[in-house]
Design a protein around this nucleic acid. Sequence first.
DNA 1: GATTGCCAACTGCTATAGCAGTTGTCCATG
DNA 2: CATGGACAACTGCTATAGCAGTTGGCAATC
Lengths: 231, 231
Amino acid sequence: MASAATDLIFRPTEGQDALSLAEGAYRRLRDAIVRGELAAGTKISERGLALTLGISAQPVREALRRLEADGMVLTQPRSGTIVAEFGPDRLAEMGRIRAALEGSAAALAAERADDAALALMDAQLAVMREATAAADTVRLAAANERFHALVHAAAGNAFLLRSLTSLRAYDHFNRVRALESTPKELPKALAEHEGLLKAFRKRDPELAEERMRAHVLRSLRAGGVLKNGKK
Amino acid sequence: MASAATDLIFRPTEGQDALSLAEGAYRRLRDAIVRGELAAGTKISERGLALTLGISAQPVREALRRLEADGMVLTQPRSGTIVAEFGPDRLAEMGRIRAALEGSAAALAAERADDAALALMDAQLAVMREATAAADTVRLAAANERFHALVHAAAGNAFLLRSLTSLRAYDHFNRVRALESTPKELPKALAEHEGLLKAFRKRDPELAEERMRAHVLRSLRAGGVLKNGKK
DNA sequence: GATTGCCAACTGCTATAGCAGTTGTCCATG
DNA sequence: CATGGACAACTGCTATAGCAGTTGGCAATC
């Protein structure tokens, strides 16, 4: 086995180069759907799409099956595949589900995150502090995403990681908007993240889960995805 | 469009006959894994498995990708696929995740379940009452499963339905055991289900979510999947 | 004109073949 | 004996071809 140093040196390019065709088609289609480039109800043909993407029909089919699992397309066997419609209510659904799963991830992270993982989260928190002070929403959003990704990784559950990655796509187009809409919310979000890290350090799964859940729900309300009336 | 009557007459066989080969392979493999017939670490080859099942490699591959999403197998690109190991701790994880998602489903069901769906749940509840009185654990488990399936359907969310179906496989082998272990728990579970239906009828998503979550967690503790110490 | 049957052009699904990495073994070499 | 390298036998991944249902329109019939 190679050493850690050589691992770092020969690490493959982390861009979208080394992706399998199926994975690439999945991401491309997913992004196109959440951006609204593919309207709801649009018929998708495995062959046609394969021709468009310049690849075979097999990877396209695999991508469509994943999108179906994500709830983004609907496939009628032997008949056809159409992109599902997700209006505001559907987005609210997915948001609430995400809040529940993020909570589960936080609970597991509280049990398992080692010092290295906690240090990485702390580093992202430092970035978020700076970005919050400078009102740099773009940088803040990036750090926020990395922070949550660290939590997902610390949870160490494949199913959870996969599910949360899928769910994250849903609020892709209103993520920045959520942070920009009410600048007063920025310090609040920062405080919530700090509270989360404290819960992790206390090894308190219940507390971490509840805090994460509340954090995501409040973030969704701030972005207008959820009604303010909901608890 | 055909009438409802002809729909009933010409409804295809609801057995496992009309399943696609990929779906069949998925279920077969999944069951084999949860039953322990395929030990953790066992290497799985797409070609080899296809030969064993008497089908092509493509459906097998599709099944393996789903199992990977479920966290049941681990695939190293261009190298190989092995069945993941899930000891008691992993089962506890999946159980807690399931509790969170069942809660989300219950919340959505409270908002959307129409009278017909509620009546169907009530019917299953009646069966559960009888089975509980007669201590018929097998019949009770079946009714219990149908009740939860009705909730999932009432939630009306494809992602949720798919995820919960996948998660349900994890506690397949200790489901009956959970109900048999402590007969005193049976009336408690029945009361919880009744409380759930009441929450649905009150259109109270928060209450339904919390009750469902508590119900699943308690059920897991009764089955020994979760430690008793956890709240 | 409304209706029924049929046929062609789809659709998703499966089988087969071959590509491109990975891995382990075996032999030549130090 | 230890070590390195090449080769063969894998692996997952992709491409192509063909099967089997579904669908929509067109023509023949009532």
